[in-house]
Design a protein around this nucleic acid. Structure first.
Lengths: 181, 181
DNA sequence: GCTTGTTATGCAACGAATTGCATAGCAGGA
DNA sequence: TCCTGCTATGCAATTCGTTGCATAACAAGC
């Protein structure tokens, strides 16, 4: 898997500039694929030279021109080809889990500090969950009126919601465990 | 966060060679931090030159010598320092979510292929959950008799179990959604 | 009038990760 | 006997990701 495919999906949902894509990666798409604006600009150029996207310069008065990208038929074929490949196993990187196991080699004070940090981390994810729930109400109020794309976006969002809920429950378990040591 | 810290935790739990670490990353530690043998060898060398670990050559007849690493006091201090830093936000990379949203731009045949792939993916994660549950019974049969390190390992494993259960439920939701399109 | 923030793009440098390949001996099965 | 697979380590090349910085114009608040 590469960033290219996430960009193709995002541009098919809605064409836009590199900057707009970077915003979307911070919000929606970034829930399951993160990227900085540097990566996005670099990859967009390569994709254009490969003929997966094309662009047109849009002059704007008062601010720099922007370059609006949209997916070419070749880009769409490339995406469809990738969609039909098997899903690769994920590369998991869960820093908090490493720290929890590491806490066995720290002292009382270190474990107290970890509890404080877990509480902070939990509050962050509670806020994330609330953002998801607000977005769900706003964007998907009535399931029967959604088109295919929206139904698929909704089921992915439900995955994010389920993940955050699971995480909050687990963090409560972690806090209980740390406090009982 | 860097690979270094995961290696320090693993070597503190049990000293070993680069190869053994690579095995562990495939099994236990790899549940929340993946690494290949190449990364591990490279990082171990840097860690040794920084004085975080030391090693001794162990001659073995019939097969290549192995180099057994263990954590130095400096390495342990380094780990403790890192443990007390705030947890960084995770870089999420969830390929399947991208493919599901991408399915809006594929045809009937593509969505059928995706259903097949999700079923395969689900079976993989069901197997993972069963491995975790078997390991839990084997390694943590009686919570009251566990030491601090084991309790912490157990709560991390419970996180893995909760994640896999959440994922299976969500994949059922995904399958329902795809089949109703 | 000054600072901060937002839109919009990009270069350069560095460090990390991945992929392919190589060595080397032994064990076990077809 | 040959092939595959496992233990055990490592080089080299390439690609990917991150960080710092730079430009440029405007809007809003102090």
């Amino acid at each position: 898997m590469a960033l290219e495919h996430a960009i193709l999906v995002s541009l098919l949902e809605q064409p836009g500039s590199g900057y707009e894509l970077a915003r979307r990666f911070e919000r929606s798409i970034g829930r399951f694929w993160t990227a900085t604006h540097q990566q996005i600009y670099r990859v967009l150029k390569r994709m254009e030279s490969d003929g997966w996207v094309d662009s047109q310069e849009i002059g704007q008065d008062g601010r720099p021109d922007k370059r609006a990208y949209s997916v070419t038929p070749l880009g769409r074929e490339t995406l469809v080809g990738w969609l039909r490949e098997p899903v690769q196993p994920e590369a998991v990187r869960h820093e908090l889990a490493v720290k929890i196991r590491g806490a066995a080699f720290d002292d009382e004070a270190g474990r107290t500090a970890l509890i404080t940090e877990v509480v902070r981390y939990r509050a962050e994810h509670e806020a994330t969950l609330n953002r998801y729930l607000t977005g769900e109400k706003r964007d998907f109020p009535d399931e029967t009126e959604l088109d295919t794309g929206q139904r698929l976006q909704h089921v992915v969002l439900r995955g994010g919601i389920a993940y955050e809920r699971m995480l909050l429950d687990w963090l409560d378990d972690v806090l209980d465990t740390l406090r009982q040591l």
